[in-house]
Design a protein around this nucleic acid. Structure first.
Length: 784
DNA sequence: CATTTTCCGATTTTT
DNA sequence: TCGGAAAATG
């Protein structure tokens, strides 16, 4: 199909039509990366080189997977539903369901999301009487997930000290608890699937032979375990086609390892390295800014974006006195943009941390501009939804103690902490689940627990033949959740969400192509399938019975009941945060959340030392480089208009902080910048810049004297009057404030005098008495 | 058992 | 400062 390949540039075309050999595509921002990925799959299938069943494409988010399937569906007359396109977790879940016995899991295993995992850990520690002050559950959670992502089981973790030994012990106990309950956490999905392939040679060979083409999106975001999993699938006759951009690696903090790109190149002797450098998104000045900034990073694979578009508008820079003034200016500019006819959806306000959204939201509300904030609570994370899901999980797998503990007393049935303690004791004694331990609890507690057990048992029996939507509807009703929220004063929204859950189940059934009457708890036979397929392992001998799935992926390749599928879906895809979705609104989000998106006009706000780059990143290895990549991602979101802003002072956690403008301004090509406020040179800045002192250090510097009230030009909003704060703003300190001096220790400011470089403070130190200090010299730090 | 009070944390986040 | 979660109280 020539149309398929039409309009591809030479590099894109080369990438799309590469032979079946290891390939690494370095795809810059806005270079048509997704298009290459999708077109290659379509091209392979169309050429007869691959079939829908022999392609495996893996992404990081469900959104990306969905987009890929939808666009592929539009290109080819095939059903993409059965194709192995999904997230790492989604695909691992699918494989584990198909081979649950080989993986050592019950057929009805459930998936713990992050919150479930934490509550499981807390329950475990309580049962073992572990001091949660000394061993914070959150730290243990991090420890466990980190170990799993390194591919380490408890026995593989190096014990370095007693503290660490305790963590390893708890890790082991946690894994045992999960195994007993038939639950897996996110990292376990990947590790278990990796081990399944690693320890089962015939199965590994089967999948290596099956998946001729393995395509990976956002390869720079893969962690060690994900890469190891991919390597398990790479065999003698297939190849990995990896697409990524090392300059957009911004997830090191959650285990992403950019080094995987270099490792892949070496380990697979990658012959085909193609750089996509033609950018189809941004105007020239914006791209110049991005290119120049990222050049300051040392360890790059190397890439330079170019565009055929003209220079376009310069990058506008604004210095504000305060964060609220910054917000005022942003909102005025947005108003002007909208007045020129720009749609609100095409305007994004980006910030480094969520706390910054408040001021901007506040200002937008004041002038009545609709906006949408990304992030926040998502549908399947809502408490009422999680409650309903817990009942469904109990119906499917009674051993799921996390679900049991969640709803045993919700709605309230008189089962308090003491009853539960008795139950937990019994469960430990008989080494069984809480549900199974119910008969061993005597007395009043025993009878209320028994009533709950009877309820769940009845629900399980009565839903046996029901379809998924019927099961959900029945569960919401019989659990008493519907009634509870009905009677609750503020329960209407929650009640609606429960109804929405029923709708979600209906939508799920239809999207997955099940018949509406398919029982929720049996493995469905789809039209055309001859038998319920299953893979049985016998002494390492693998009998592959899923032949229909291989020739026709639309025919039930999953071996998953609709209920298991729905519960997995709920855990793996938390859903949208539905706040103000749909309407034409200005988009507010963190820079991280903006990755992959594009807007006509972009505001990057809070460009201050300590905030962006963030002070905490100074502690981490290569932290500054990651911050710079983050800035690179932010800049490359903009198509036509880019605005950068910063504020001299900012209210954060109830305290005013005085910040120096971000070093990133000095790393941008000055000729692309148009300062809307006078640019103050670093040398003229109070106290100067201390580039070698570690950038987390000097964010308490004085406000900028150069930018006094009347020196603003082109300022669309008047400066706020803050005369009563003037002294504080000028010196960065106020009388009565607690400060710390490197030599004299802690003290209280008793007086302030002078301004600018002559500013002095009188400080009463705890040990050294009262002293006058020249603020230009003394390194005073505020103390909370 | 439910409501009030206190306490803690505070960068980024998907699965 | 502020919001969620644990602890304290009626």
């Amino acid at each position: 199909m020539p149309e398929l390949l039409a309009n591809l540039n030479p590099e894109q075309l080369a990438a799309v039509t590469l032979p079946n050999e290891p390939a690494l595509i370095l795809a810059g921002a806005g270079s048509g990366k997704t298009r290459v990925l999708i077109t290659r799959i379509a091209w392979l299938i169309q050429q007869g080189l691959a079939s829908p069943a022999t392609v495996l494409a893996v992404t990081f988010t469900n959104k990306a997977a969905r987009e890929m399937m939808a666009r592929l569906q539009a290109l080819l007359p095939i059903d993409t539903r059965g194709m192995w396109i999904g997230t790492f977790h989604g695909l691992c879940n699918r494989m584990l369901r198909a081979h649950y016995r080989d993986a050592g899991l019950p057929q009805t295993f459930q998936i713990l999301d992050t919150a479930d995992q934490l509550s499981a850990i807390k329950r475990l520690m309580k049962g073992l009487n572990v001091d949660d002050e000394k061993y914070p559950p959150k730290n243990l959670q991090y420890f466990i997930n980190n170990a799993k992502e390194q591919g380490l089981r408890p026995k593989d973790v190096d014990v370095t000290d007693n503290f660490n030994r305790k963590f390893v012990e708890l890790y082991e106990a946690y894994d045992q608890q999960c195994q007993r309950e038939g639950v897996v956490d996110f990292a376990e999905l990947l590790l278990r699937c990796y081990e399944l392939l690693a320890y089962n040679a015939p199965l590994r060979a089967h999948y290596q032979a099956r998946f001729r083409d393995i395509l990976v999106d956002e390869f720079q975001d893969t962690n060690k375990l994900q890469y190891a999993w991919l390597k398990m699938l790479a065999g003698p006759a297939n190849a990995i086609f990896a697409v990524g951009d090392d300059d957009q690696s911004i997830y090191a903090f959650r285990g992403a390892n950019v080094g995987n790109m270099r490792d892949f190149e070496e380990e697979f002797r990658v012959k085909h390295l193609i750089k996509l450098e033609q950018n189809y998104r941004s105007h020239g000045y914006i791209l110049d800014a991005a290119n120049r900034l990222i050049e300051h990073n040392a360890h790059r694979l190397g890439k330079n974006l170019r565009t055929d578009a003209g220079h376009g508008e310069p990058v506008r820079v604004y210095e504000a006195a305060t964060d609220s003034q910054e917000a005022g200016w942003i909102v005025e500019e947005i108003r002007a943009l909208i007045n020129t006819g720009l749609s609100r959806n095409e305007v994004a306000v980006l910030y480094r941390s969520n706390a910054q959204s408040r001021t901007i939201e506040h200002t937008l509300v004041n002038v009545g501009i609709p906006y949408r904030v990304y992030g926040g609570l998502r549908f399947f994370e809502r408490q009422e939804v999680k409650h309903a899901l817990a009942y469904l999980r109990l119906i499917d797998n009674p051993n799921d103690d996390t679900a049991f503990a969640r709803v045993v007393n919700f709605p309230a049935r008189g089962i308090g902490a003491r009853s539960l303690e008795q139950l937990a004791d019994a469960a430990r004694l008989y080494n069984c689940s809480m549900a199974a331990a119910v008969p061993y609890v005597a007395g009043k507690a025993g009878s209320s627990l028994a009533a709950f057990a009877t309820l769940v048992g009845r629900m399980r029996a009565e839903t046996q033949q029901m379809s998924l939507p019927e099961t959900v509807e029945y569960t919401v009703r019989m659990s008493g959740l519907a009634e509870f929220y009905q009677n609750e004063r503020e329960g209407q929204d929650r009640l609606e969400n429960l109804q929405e859950l029923v709708n979600a189940a209906t939508a799920f059934v239809s999207e997955e192509g099940y018949g509406l009457d398919t029982p929720a708890r049996s493995i469905p036979l789809r039209p055309g399938a001859t038998a319920a397929p299953e893979i049985v392992s016998d002494d390492g001998e693998i009998e592959v019975l899923d032949a229909p799935a291989i020739t026709d992926p639309a025919q039930n390749p999953d071996l998953m009941t609709p209920l298991a599928g729905f519960l997995s879906h709920a855990s793996l895809e938390a859903g949208d945060n539905q706040a103000q979705a749909g309407q034409d609104a200005v988009q507010l989000m963190t820079v991280h959340a903006a990755k992959g998106l594009e807007f006509t006009a972009v505001f990057i706000t809070g460009l201050e030392e300590g905030l962006f780059p963030h002070e905490n990143s100074a502690m981490e290895a290569d932290g500054l480089e990651e911050e710079r990549r983050l800035m690179y991602v932010a800049i490359t979101r903009a198509k036509e208009r880019l605005y950068l802003s910063f504020a001299q002072s900012r209210l954060l956690h109830g305290q005013t902080r005085y910040n120096v403008r971000s070093r990133f301004f000095d790393e941008l090509p000055q000729e692309t910048l148009k300062w809307l406020t006078p640019k103050v040179e670093a040398g003229a800045r109070w106290g100067g810049r201390s580039d070698n002192a570690g950038y987390g250090r000097d964010w308490f510097s004085r406000p900028d004297r150069g930018a006094s009230r009347d020196s603003y030009v082109e300022s669309s909003a008047p400066l706020p009057a803050f005369a009563n704060e003037q002294r504080a703003a000028e010196t960065g300190f106020r009388v009565g404030q607690q400060v710390f001096h490197t030599k004299f220790g802690e003290g209280t400011i008793t007086a302030l005098e002078g301004s600018g470089t002559d500013a002095k403070a009188q400080v009463r130190f705890k040990r050294h008495g009262e002293k006058w200090l020249a603020l230009a010299v003394a390194k005073l730090q505020p103390v909370e």
